[in-house]
């Protein structure tokens, strides 16, 4: 067997985490990106900076603050406790919340660029043809922004797969719960299991390459949409 059960479990967990985060961010990131693309509010700069923060912050800093927020005395921790959900750190859903924050710019920035490139005219045309703003969004904006959605989803998925620092801070290293592929490789290296680390790293390398290759081949220049953090 090339990969151990533990390796396969961590890869499965990674894919599950990346899928959930991508779906959550598609739902949450779309209105944020739309607002950033369309608003003339002075708050736009502040929200844009907040969204971009994970690109420049060390993952440990983000992880540290998220850990405090989700802790027993933190606002998120208080909320989850009052809702009877319990503490989020070192759980899969805690990992999802942390990853949502960490991958936010990878979803929002390509979407914002896609929305901005559509411009006002298609919306004005739709309005004069009787479409409400929501109708125009679903029948005109979404189809026109489809390349942006694909780019954003692929980048978010790939970025979540590659997470390490934030995962370690929030999720720890619990098999089947928070031990994702990157942490599994770290474990192998710590235990001097270099051949196992090699196999896992190769899987991750090939996966990442294929994802990026498909993105470049499909749409050259799409990675320009995101500044690498």
């Amino acid at each position: 067997m090339v990969l151990t059960d533990s390796d396969i479990q961590s890869i499965w967990l990674t894919i599950k985490l990346a899928s959930v985060v991508t779906v959550v961010l598609l739902v949450l990131g779309t209105p944020v990106a739309w607002w950033l693309a369309r608003s003339r509010s002075p708050l736009k700069g502040i929200l844009g900076a907040v969204v971009a923060l994970p690109l420049v912050l060390p993952p440990s800093v983000l992880g540290f603050y998220l850990l405090l927020a989700m802790g027993p005395d933190g606002p998120i921790g208080n909320l989850t406790r009052s809702l009877g959900i319990g503490a989020l750190p070192f759980t899969f859903w805690g990992l999802v919340i942390a990853s949502v924050f960490y991958s936010l710019p990878f979803m929002v920035q390509p979407l914002q660029n896609a929305f901005e490139s559509i411009g006002d005219r298609p919306l004005e045309v739709a309005a004069t043809l009787g479409a409400s703003p929501l109708d125009a969004f679903f029948t005109v904006v979404l189809p026109l922004a489809r390349p942006g959605f694909l780019t954003a989803a692929i980048l978010t998925f790939a970025h979540t797969v590659g997470e390490f620092g934030v995962v370690l801070m929030i999720g720890g290293n619990i098999p089947g719960v928070s031990r994702v592929a990157s942490v599994q490789i770290y474990d192998h290296v710590e235990a001097l299991e270099y051949s196992q680390a090699h196999r896992m790293a190769a899987v991750m390398l090939i996966f990442s390459f294929v994802v990026l290759l498909s993105l470049y081949a499909w749409r050259p220049g799409s990675l320009k949409m995101v500044r690498k953090g």
């Binding site: 005219r121 298609p122 004005e124 045309v125 309005a127 004069t128 009787g130 409400s132 026109l144």
Partner: peptide, 20 residues
């Protein structure tokens, strides 16, 4: 009145057809 409620259609300088 919102544009979609006015029943005033418009033909623009650039056709504005939906490419999709």
């Amino acid at each position: 009145l919102r544009p979609e409620k006015r029943r005033i259609a418009m033909v623009f300088q650039q056709h504005g057809l939906f490419p999709h």
